[in-house]
């Protein structure tokens, strides 16, 4: 069964590339959101299996979005954090967020996501 994905990133060109990459590898992209609040609304409505979540968003940052998604008393999605920054720059916040893992945008591929979720 295809895994459903919600892509959260404020840059349209990046979202388009990520969608192309995920769909090529058999993921079903059920929605896109360009900010933290929009992501929370979309996740509640679409119930995706996976949220590909950018850390730096214009309204609420990705760590806070991850915390709220995981705090919800419903089926929680798996969360993969992404960023154009390195994991060293983000430090312990990644682990504290409760996300499944972190992939730098420069290394993002469907294979990297699959390995992380395995």
């Amino acid at each position: 069964m295809e895994k459903s994905v919600l892509i959260v990133d404020d840059h349209p060109s990046f979202r388009a590339s990520a969608r192309r990459m995920l769909e090529a590898d058999g993921y079903e992209v059920v929605g896109e959101a360009e900010g933290g609040r929009a992501a929370l609304t979309a996740a509640e409505r679409l119930r995706p299996d996976l949220v590909l979540l950018d850390v730096r968003l214009p309204d609420i940052d990705g760590f806070e979005v991850a915390r709220r998604l995981l705090d919800a008393n419903v089926r929680t999605p798996q969360i993969v954090l992404i960023s154009s920054q390195d994991s060293i720059d983000l430090g312990e916040a990644i682990g504290a967020s409760g996300a499944r893992g972190f992939i730098p945008k420069s290394e993002l591929s469907a294979g990297a996501i699959t390995s992380l979720l395995r």
Partner: peptide, 15 residues
């Protein structure tokens, strides 16, 4: 962001 997207596209193209 454009360069990140470019990287994803190139990796996908390589595959």
């Amino acid at each position: 962001q454009r360069l990140m997207a470019l990287g994803i596209n190139l990796r996908l193209a390589r595959d």
